[in-house]
Design a protein around this nucleic acid. Structure first.
Lengths: 157, 157
DNA sequence: CCCTCCCTGACCATATCTGACCTTTGCTTT
DNA sequence: AAAGCAAAGGTCAGATATGGTCAGGGAGGG
């Protein structure tokens, strides 16, 4: 558990408490609370509270400045997931794939565990080949996500 | 008894102690404990803790990095299917893929519906590309089957 | 002798954390 | 107003801490 993780959890907890809407924080106070430099807060925000993960950040400097963190509302999760699948191009890098997985997870399409399995399969299958990794990864990701969504649906019934 | 074996046993012991769920390790510490180079740990993980054997590995680099080993097994079904998955070569034709699907179905690894989904995904994903159809098909089939097995297992619990 | 498995070390990739320096905003003083 | 000052927050390069990869050497059983 790094400081970044602790800060992340704290912020999410605060968000949850506020009804998953939005909260306003003071960067300096947060840094004080966790005994770190203020820029550490920016680091956490930049790496954990991105738009892809469903968060909106806005801030103001100067006296009375603040950092506002809002949860992005999603209309229909499956629709968005389908949109995401469509957005996976012919090729995709490892980190991009990770982004997509995080997205699906945030949308509630993939559980932690399902995500792990998909990730493991992706790594496993792309590890062997020399060329065309990105292409294979894209195809696999699409397929695995689609299948997982189906699994989820089947299990619900 | 090689060092690799010792490390393997140690990890399995730790897993057992944790109730066969999951454990987090530090690669550096483990290497230190067994007086070997860190990459030796990777070797053990890559050869002994594979998906086929029922283990899931995930890791993170950088500060606060870790290696997480999770058990996903219930060996019987895996053993059967593992054999099949292993037999899928680097490339596979459409009709061969169909054969494998039938086999998985006969083993009770895939339900009718899961088979249909896998088939659909295979067709869908290989339809787009011009070259390397057989290779992609093999990778996808392996991945989809593994994923489906995992899904099945997860739901049983 | 050859093959497979084990082991090592050099080099690479990535996450976290810090501090120096910069920008914006509001209030106060001329 | 304009200038000056204080109080936020922002950026970025670099240090530190992990883990990953790969080619090659070595050991032991056919």
């Amino acid at each position: 558990m790094t400081i970044a993780d602790l800060i992340e959890n704290y912020i999410k907890q605060q968000l949850h408490r506020s009804g998953n809407q939005a909260i306003a924080l003071s960067r300096a106070e947060l840094a004080e609370l966790f005994s770190c430099v203020p820029s550490q807060i920016n680091y956490v925000l930049a790496t954990r509270f991105t738009l892809e993960r469903g968060y909106l950040i806005e801030s103001r400097r100067g006296g009375g400045g603040y950092i506002r963190i809002a949860r992005v509302t999603k209309a229909d999760r499956l629709d968005m997931a389908e949109q995401l699948v469509l957005e996976i191009g012919p090729q995709i890098s490892e980190s991009e794939a990770e982004q997509f997985l995080a997205n699906f997870h945030d949308l509630g399409v993939l559980t932690e565990q399902q995500m792990r399995v998909v990730r493991a399969v992706l790594q496993r299958e792309t590890a062997q080949i020399a060329q065309g990794k990105a292409t294979l990864r894209a195809s696999l990701l699409r397929g695995l996500v689609i299948l997982t969504m189906q699994c989820g649906r089947m299990n619900e019934v």
